[in-house]
Design a protein around this nucleic acid. Sequence first.
DNA 1: GCACACTGTGTGCGCCGTACGCAGACCATA
DNA 2: TATGGTCTGCGTACGGCGCACACAGTGTGC
Lengths: 247, 247
Amino acid sequence: MDKTAEELPRALQLMWGIEGPARPGPKPTLHISDIGAAGVRLADAAGLGAVSMAKVAAEVGFTTMSLYRYVDSKDELYTVMIDEAFGVPEPIAPELDWRAGITRWAMLVREAIHRHPWILQVPLFEPPLSPKQLEWMETGLRVLDGTPLSAGEKLSSMVLVNIYVRGAAQLTAEMFARPDRTREENDQLYGRRLMMLATPDRFPMIAATVAAGIERADSGDDPDDFKFGLTAVLDGIQALIDRTSHT
Amino acid sequence: MDKTAEELPRALQLMWGIEGPARPGPKPTLHISDIGAAGVRLADAAGLGAVSMAKVAAEVGFTTMSLYRYVDSKDELYTVMIDEAFGVPEPIAPELDWRAGITRWAMLVREAIHRHPWILQVPLFEPPLSPKQLEWMETGLRVLDGTPLSAGEKLSSMVLVNIYVRGAAQLTAEMFARPDRTREENDQLYGRRLMMLATPDRFPMIAATVAAGIERADSGDDPDDFKFGLTAVLDGIQALIDRTSHT
DNA sequence: GCACACTGTGTGCGCCGTACGCAGACCATA
DNA sequence: TATGGTCTGCGTACGGCGCACACAGTGTGC
């Protein structure tokens, strides 16, 4: 058993299927992904706030404390849930050029987040190390393989796209989290409040924006809006590529 | 008193200084910003986890429940804290062109976040409506005033920059949150773990990136890395501007 | 001078994450 | 096949959390 492996949190060891030498004693009943799936089910149904050790344990039919045989803390449970929620990334046709490829990748990330909006609420304290998270990274990097970018630049570009997708989705996730109001009602309410508070004398730019009827763009995530920002991000990467190939 | 104003959460009314008709009874002792400042002090010192209604109340010398005379819920306390943490935005020299101006704005946002990294951990359920948040928005929009972009496009561009700054900062905030390990140790540990888990056969792109010694770029937020991404984002906006002026 | 809405407080509830110790099940080894 | 050691799953318990609610006292507007 590798020394570095021992430092790994329990959940990561289980997710990667790392095992020490054969040991006596009972085998674990559950698979770590059972726990992740249970957490995902709860979060999908009632939001991240509905995920507690006790509820997840009940969902898998175990007692609260038994979860700690698989997961060292609630933060690790979150890690497992995120891995489960993203799932195995759909492969991206390799014949696509980088721009079409990373656009497809961005759309897939976006869809995953929209399926499980609570992902954006999970507080993160560690960089990603779980298997499927790394597969998503790998997939994203691969579509940039044909570009003249350096390895570091590819990584930064992928991270940039990822940042954008998450950030853009967050603007709509806020809206999702209201069971009592529809998204339209939320938008209208926000617009009304902005008009009341952002008076033209103190906030001329905001007032003009609201007056232009574009407050929708602030809170909205219309595919067009999403594409708008993504286009800008990709144009930026394109500029980097151009600079790279010219030198 | 405006009907729309009544819908406003208590904390927002206090922050905006909205008052109903003169009322009998004692005047509130505290100002809402006292509470925000106390929360900011706690979060700066020991992270967002150290912020509880009881601790904040003790910090201002009141009982737990008295806070609820100023704030309807803990989420509203967060709103007040964020408003307090960002503070009044420093004005941006109007003679700067849009690119220099928004770069300055991005740097200011970045500095505010680095001063109070817990900002990125605050779960958001509402779009921004607090006074200083709107002032930051106004400041960001103003530097785009000279561009040929429409009001909606200006808003989207500012939001895009904001998304980027937050996202880029988040990659380093994870590192900040470890009192026991330095950032270098964290990076090295992450690199070692990546090398162990992301084997070249299953994760050739990641492995190549790590081998290129650029894993630093993934977890790091060196000013250069930050500038790299920002450049890409601004190039994207530039492309939009070019497209707009040509038509 | 009075009524009453308001502020600040105390109590208490249900839930949370998780430390700790125990009983029994199971497997590697002899 | 016997057995020792170790692991799994469980029960209990603790401190802390957000916050609902009722109450006493205060000070203003009428």
